[in-house]
Simulated scan of single mutants.
Amino acid sequence: MNMQSECFQIEAEMPWEDLGNGIQRQVFGYNDQVMLVKAKFEVGAIGTLHEHHHTQVTYVDSGIFEMTIGIEQKIIRKGDGFYVPPHTIHGCVCIAAGTLIDAFSPARQDFLE
């Protein structure tokens, strides 16, 4: 499937998708091969442990999170980041409200449905 976002994404003009349980998502630029996504977490929100075939790289824009990747767990905060290889179990618990900036390859088509 050939898909592509508009060339510019203006934050104030883009909708947030309410995922429930204190998590919201905002999809930014993408094509078939790459996608940028913002995920906003309230204190106590849980990014349930999961896995997917996408490679994921994430930057912590704000907040504090207890992050689990495979069997490793670390506290990460503003300025930190993490890498998740394909098919690796991962998830987080939000300790202080914040936003994660995720890049996926290939794009998460399921986020557009």
Score class of each variant (00 low, 15 high):
T68A: 10
I69S: 04
G70L: 12
I71V: 12
I71F: 06
I71E: 15
I71A: 14
E72W: 00
E72Q: 13
E72C: 03
E72F: 04
E72M: 05
Q73D: 02
K74S: 09
I75G: 10
I75T: 15
I75A: 06
I75R: 15
I75Q: 14
I75K: 15
R77G: 14
R77F: 07
R77S: 15
K78S: 15
K78G: 15
K78Q: 15
G79C: 12
G79M: 12
G79Y: 12
D80R: 09
G81W: 13
G81C: 15
F82K: 13
F82N: 14
F82M: 13
Y83G: 07
V84D: 08
P85F: 01
P85S: 13
P85A: 12
P85D: 09
P86V: 03
P86G: 04
P86R: 00
P86T: 02
H87C: 05
H87G: 00
H87W: 09
H87T: 05
T88S: 10
T88A: 06
T88Y: 00
I89Q: 12
I89L: 14
I89P: 13
I89H: 09
G91N: 11
G91M: 07
C92V: 11
C92D: 13
C92Q: 09
V93P: 01
V93S: 11
V93Y: 04
V93H: 06
V93K: 10
C94S: 12
C94D: 10
C94P: 08
I95N: 06
I95S: 06
I95M: 09
I95E: 03
I95C: 06
A96H: 07
A96Y: 05
A96L: 07
A97F: 01
G98V: 02
G98W: 03
T99G: 01
T99Q: 10
T99D: 05
T99C: 10
L100E: 02
L100K: 04
I101N: 06
I101H: 06
I101T: 08
I101M: 07
D102Y: 01
A103F: 12
A103H: 06
A103V: 11
A103L: 09
S105T: 13
S105L: 06
P106G: 04
P106F: 02
P106M: 01
A107Q: 02
A107W: 01
R108V: 12
R108F: 11
R108N: 08
R108C: 11
R108L: 11
Q109R: 10
Q109P: 02
D110F: 03
D110Y: 05
F111Q: 02
F111V: 02
F111Y: 15
L112R: 00
L112T: 04
L112M: 07
L112H: 03
